[in-house]
Design a protein around this nucleic acid. Structure first.
Lengths: 340, 340
DNA sequence: TAGTTAACTGGAAGCGCTTCCAAGTATATT
DNA sequence: AATATACTTGGAAGCGCTTCCAGTTAACTA
């Protein structure tokens, strides 16, 4: 019933090889033959069968994106960038969203063997050495986004520097009792941000007070990067009473939202009583006047696709690393404007 | 190099047909043979080639989702629901994101002929009669989400009722000079929401004043459902001076954000000077205290997949329509709490 | 025990394409 | 004009699966 390459060949009065060459823009074809075939294609409204092409070409013209169950600005925006760049190539995007730990590996395994995708974008998750080896040995292109592994292409954000800048910002505004609220330390960004925080303190002659460092490990499942965790963490700091910090670097904006809620509930005011600086610059941040570190999310998505395509199309095997820098976005939550 | 069904067959000492039957869970196979084959599969780490399966089965085990270039809570959340439900089936999701008008048709055409997907979720866009006919004649399953066509399965939100409830809420709070800011009327929801607005006014004995109805048609490309458009529209209303409305129903939360900005800039206060009610209940709404109409976005996504799968798997050809109801979420922007 | 019947199993054919090779055709060279 | 050379073209083979048909084996039945 559906029209195949044979129908087109018959209609155009040529062989199927010729039709195939036209479809694939082969140069070895006369202008005249090409015109004939194109007309037949148009008249029959022919479109090649993707699966048949994939099978014969041993190439799917599709990439996969393995991404945590996204509900949030970061993933939405990243996907936006990915799609935008992907449009330049005639590739489809298959989305694998990961909810539980186990399914991450499940998708990786499938991606490696189903031959349904020509490459993988692996977002915001750690990849085990076992799979790193598999990707290296099969040669299936993979790019890590917002994640890092020394042997694989990685696109990251310089969390350490971002945290350093954020902390420094607080220091320069004159705050001295500075705390940090972090995500769970099993997360790489959480660790890096902690490092940047410590470095800034140290380089400015502050000593690190562990009462002023709260990790959001209130729940097993989550990674601590959420509103509720921020809320709980801030309560711990507020419980210090007189000793409570006067400025807090929070490892993500979404946590900072919870933090601000906790502060408000105790009738303190941001930034008058406590200054808050976040990380991410999610959409919400501007509405609550949160000073934060912006990540170039859209650009990350675009670069990820660009790089993955180089691996796929040009078979570029060199090792690619890119560390995006964050940018300080000053709003009201640290009192920067008031101090002037 | 990659392991095929022949390798498995040889290793297990059976025919390829038998291996295929094991893969596809055919019942006509003895327990013993099955065990042999399964062992071989495991030992060789075999995984069927998806494209080959699609070709032979004439079935892709994949659905496509044609969705406006999403950057926003609505689409992110919808996709979330879609993925969640899709996990119950062993189907992959291909994302086609539409930026320009033309590409919508481009994807529809491809979906119809590439045989790469077994069904389509078509989100938030109008579909031309031409394509409706094509889908009906080819029988390729399609479900419209947040969009409507009499001849196709449609999952919608009752915009008219939502607008009616929102407007009624304002009326019941005692406001009399009530305006509406709407998206461009080429959009169906914009028209429906306008209808609900008018109906509420009428049923409560108000007359419709066209100075109090502003359509966001400031730009050709966009549909008016954005912050900037809301901002500009509100300025128009504020320009009425003494005559300006005391309450505004805004057709979407994101516009309402712009509206609130405009109000603030002129040193008016929400809700004291002007009450604002939105539509959508985006994440932001709770942070700015915006009273609004909530749409069950996640449920829409899940239902869409459920229905599409019924069409695909059970070949259910009946016509399906579902109109979700919205729900009033009262926050501070209408002064509801104050009036008590 | 022989004859039926039912249940498995093997593998050829076919899904719709790409690609390689051989054959055909046009063009250049002597 | 005859030959060598360079392009084009047709179509068989093959990509890795499913499925149908025929053959084989096991399970009943009389």
């Amino acid at each position: 019933m559906p029209v195949t390459i044979y129908d087109v060949a018959k209609k155009a009065g040529v062989g199927i090889g010729t039709v195939s060459r036209v479809i694939n823009n082969s140069p070895r074809i006369t202008r005249k033959t090409k015109a004939k075939v194109l007309r037949a294609i148009r008249e029959l409204n022919y479109q090649p069968h993707t699966s048949a092409q994939s099978l014969a070409r041993r190439k799917a013209n599709t990439i996969g994106c393995i991404i945590p169950y996204f509900a949030g600005y970061f993933y939405s925006e990243l996907l936006h960038g990915i799609q935008r760049k992907l449009r330049e190539f005639e590739y489809a995007l298959i989305l694998y969203s990961v909810d539980i730990q186990q399914s991450k590996e499940f998708f990786l395994r499938r991606a490696l063997q189903e031959r349904r995708v020509d490459g993988i974008l692996f977002v915001s998750m750690e990849i085990s050495q076992r799979y790193v080896d598999k990707f290296l040995s099969t040669g299936l292109p993979i790019v890590l986004v917002n994640s890092f592994h020394s042997a694989l292409d990685s696109i990251t954000v310089d969390s350490t520097e971002g945290a350093y800048i954020a902390t420094k910002h607080l220091i320069e505004l004159g705050y001295t009792r500075i705390a940090m609220i972090d995500g769970q330390l099993k997360s790489i960004p959480a660790r890096l941000r902690f490092e940047g925080f410590k470095k800034a303190l140290q380089q400015h002659g502050f000593h690190f007070d562990k009462r002023y460092f709260v990790v959001c490990d209130f729940s097993e499942e989550a990674d601590g990067f959420n509103k509720e965790a921020g809320y709980l963490a801030m309560q711990k700091l507020l419980d210090l009473g007189e000793e409570m910090p006067r400025a807090v670097f929070v490892s993500s904006d979404i946590q900072a939202i919870g933090v601000m809620q906790a502060i408000k509930e105790r009738d303190f005011v941001v930034p008058d009583d406590i200054a808050i600086i976040g990380f991410d610059d999610i959409e919400l941040a501007q509405y609550v006047g949160l000073t934060t570190m912006r990540q170039p999310i859209l650009e990350m998505g675009e670069l990820a696709v660009k790089r993955l395509m180089e691996r796929i199309i040009r078979k570029d095997r060199s090792e690619f690393k890119h560390n995006f820098r964050t940018q300080l976005v000053v709003r009201e939550s640290c009192g920067a404007y008031k101090n002037k």
